[in-house]
Design a protein around this nucleic acid. Structure first.
Lengths: 347, 347
DNA sequence: ATGAAAGCGCTAACAT
DNA sequence: ATGTTAGCGCTTTCAT
């Protein structure tokens, strides 16, 4: 139980040694030569007095705060940000670092985001993580380059900043392959209308996977709508109204899949017997609670947060060079989460 | 754009004045007597050099870090924690403070939570916020009392710590009143089975409101189940299977309401025409996306985070006494969020 | 109206 | 094997 009022010199006095000795034993410095008895004594006294180091003073002296800044967009809006934070927090804690989290908005001006970075710099964080709430390209505050930093779930528009993003195309391939494996050949894609990397990459994964299976990906049915429950519902209605109705749907995300569930219900199509569905995101609240449970592809938010933190700390400690990793973004796997929304066609 | 290598003394030298003067003008100290020209000069030079204060050094000297520790349970699991963080972050930023967030688990041992507090203390945070992810009683780490602190969404088992919680009973009253106002008189309650304050208080609000409306709250139908989609489904099935089927359901939370929607669908009961439903929590993903949109009661997470932060900072700055607020928890309103799941009975 | 200097709690080079 | 001491960058008292 650290007592604010007890300092290293109180311990020194009580133990009858100098502050150097106390500092040495409490920090376990390798080069220090202190007798075992003295060590013991110092530790005991420190414990007894309830001594706790003043990290501010340590930091001022060593030029290391052991703090990482995390600039995160819209912590509140999405559970995804939470997973990134958790991954980062646990990785940081493991290595003896702590996180200073600043919330910003996806729509915040470059100026206000620059001010946020400035706040982090004034606190002398050892490095910063910049996280966005969905995979996209960001214009980074210029002052970010004065400290080691890594991007999570986004890529810098001005390039050459270490970044980690999900394997959107691979995830789409995994999803479509699951449908193919179940025996489907008429597969539709409910895509997003936003101009974000995932829109293009998931479509590409969808097409290529069909092509490679000998199906014509280029002519496979695609309906686009805003990536919300409502959009999914409408796109699904259009898709399922086609003359050669698909037997399976790959949905851009779980929210759209939720809309597709409703469309299927209205059309009297049973899932998965008459219609198989696979989503993307593994948004717990939806995927696990829909009925039947939605088979989907998980975004590696936790892993991205953890990976970014590890790299950042390695860089801070001189164990690697961020610039080497900055040449192209690191891409993390999107694994399939199997539930109950896929079955053989006409099963 | 703060430059790490520029200190107050560089500014002093470049401006041809002493560090004292620089400090005085940059901090706008009231008692300092500096000529307007000097002031101007100093500011210009600081700007030009890209000077940014070293908050560590300031903190070491002033014994104030301007940092608040936030110990939050399960940041990842629930969007609720996100709202608390957002409320706290914005309030803190407004007053010139920053947040150091530490994630802990609801199931973490007292020991590990004590260590988390210790980490915050070593960083010399000016105060700490302790947030739980749902309203409950917590056993606090003992070292928490060595710094101003306030609880968010929970009450200390050992009492007498400033705390802010939602008005569970009032929220339930609001929900039931909405049903009563629509003309319902046979109202059922789908309650949670967990032994948490909300279970008891929402039930109490439900009963009392019916009593006050001249209906017999004590004999009103209640079905309990785990507070998940699945539990809601099952409880609703039992409830709607009763001979005197209620025309309206008050659900413990939105997840249970989601289960109730499914039960209603299976029973061929149209919402809200044949069955009105009101939830609790205002969990966006569910409430706004269910069809029809779920009318529900919102938990004041953002407000609790903001309120707690304001009080904490006031206490730190000597503007109030936390102990005065600690006598009993502060209770915040749970407002109704109207969507489309309530209609007149048999409408 | 401005400056010198002490000191916040600590680390680490340098003595001894 | 242990101690002395000079800062880290800043604020603030006390001089001038």
């Amino acid at each position: 139980m650290s007592n604010k009022n007890i300092g290293i010199k109180d311990v020194a006095r009580a133990a009858g040694v100098s502050v150097t000795t106390v500092s040495h034993v409490l920090n376990d410095v390798s080069y220090a030569r202190v007798s075992p008895e003295t060590k013991e004594k110092v530790r005991a006294v420190a414990e007894e007095l309830g001594y706790g180091p003043n990290r501010l003073a340590q930091a001022l002296r060593t030029q290391r705060t052991g703090m990482l800044g995390l600039l995160s967009e819209d912590i509140a809006t999405t559970p995804h940000a939470g997973r990134i934070i958790l991954g980062a927090d646990e990785a940081a804690k493991r290595r003896g670092y702590n996180l200073m989290i600043l919330n910003t908005s996806a729509s915040a001006s470059l100026e206000s985001r620059t001010a946020d970075v400035e706040a982090l710099l004034e606190r002398r964080v050892d490095g910063v993580l910049y996280a966005t709430m969905y995979h996209r390209n960001v214009e980074l505050p210029a002052n970010l380059d004065s400290v080691p930093s890594v991007l999570v779930d986004s890529v810098s528009t001005s390039g050459n900043v270490c970044a980690v993003i999900p394997d959107e195309e691979g995830g789409a391939r995994t999803a479509v392959a699951a449908l193919l494996d179940a025996g489907h050949s008429r597969i539709g894609f409910l895509n997003n209308t936003d101009d974000v990397p995932a829109t293009r990459l998931r479509l590409q994964g969808f097409r290529k996977t069909l092509d490679e299976a000998g199906l014509d990906g280029g002519s496979a049915p695609v309906e686009s709508a805003p990536s919300e429950v409502h959009g999914g519902y409408e796109a699904a209605l259009r898709m399922l109204g086609r003359s050669d109705r698909p037997t399976a749907l790959f949905c851009y995300n779980d929210r759209m899949a939720m809309g597709a569930y409703r469309a299927a219900a209205e059309l009297g199509l049973a899932i998965p017997k008459e219609l198989s569905i696979v989503g993307f995101d593994d948004q717990q609240l939806i995927a696990a609670n829909l009925h039947p449970g939605l088979t989907t592809v998980a975004l590696p938010h936790y892993e991205m947060g953890a990976w970014a933190t590890e790299q950042l700390i390695d860089a801070i400690e001189g164990k690697n060079e961020l610039s080497r990793l900055a040449l192209s973004p690191t891409i993390l796997d999107c694994p399939l989460v199997v539930r109950d929304s896929i079955a053989a066609p006409g099963a």
